[in-house]
């Protein structure tokens, strides 16, 4: 029942996982990138009372026209960084939607016809970048390269605006790795 079915740019993205995985920052970066692409955007989130652990999600709705409702309800893109959120939200992924999971934590994926991408983001962030906190940027960059929901250039600028200068280099490394993983994904 998506609104504006005819406009090509309407896209609902949900980033999901647990608190502390940087999903809300991921959502903010995606939203900032969309603004840089000249699009309209609405970003919302849901989280539990605790700032670590518990489930967490960030929604980003991007459109080239008015956005009425800020929460994603039928996702075009779903990123799941843990099993629980994958199980919970998969039913609201559109049939033609894209599912991206972190296989470090997501062991079972039960979808029929969605496009599924399975990457051990957390493991790679820890091993290749040397910091688990870059998982969000790694996964987000992978997502952007695969789905083209925003341009790579805007993503890069949005990351720069959103992370502390001290962590910029590290996050750039994570972004490049994300792009690479997407290019080489078979």
């Amino acid at each position: 029942m998506a609104i504006n079915k005819n406009t090509s740019k309407y896209c609902e993205t949900r980033l999901s996982g647990s608190g502390g995985q940087g999903l809300i920052l991921g959502g903010i970066i995606l939203a900032r990138g969309a603004i840089k692409d000249g699009l309209k955007v609405s970003q919302s989130q849901s989280y539990g009372p605790e700032s670590r652990g518990g489930s967490s999600r960030a929604d980003v709705i991007i459109n080239d026209d008015m956005i009425y409702y800020p929460e994603a309800t039928h996702f075009d893109i779903l990123l799941a960084l843990n099993q629980e959120s994958c199980d919970k939200y998969i039913y609201d992924l559109k049939p033609e939607g894209v599912l991206i999971v972190d296989t470090t934590f997501v062991k079972n994926v039960s979808v029929m016809d969605s496009k599924v991408y399975e990457v051990p983001f957390t493991k790679l962030a820890t091993e290749k970048i040397g910091s688990v906190v870059t998982t969000n940027i790694l996964a987000l960059s992978f997502l952007v390269k695969i789905t083209k929901v925003i341009t790579e250039k805007s993503l890069e600028e949005a990351i720069k605006e959103s992370v502390k200068p001290a962590f910029y280099e590290m996050n750039m490394k994570a972004m490049k790795l994300g792009f690479e993983l997407a290019d080489n994904y078979k």
């Binding site: 939203a31 603004i35 309209k40 955007v41 609405s42 970003q43 919302s44 989130q45 956005i67 800020p70």
Partner: peptide
């Protein structure tokens, strides 16, 4: 809570 925490351009 949603309006207070959501972001828009």
């Amino acid at each position: 809570e949603v309006l207070g925490h959501m972001r828009e351009a």
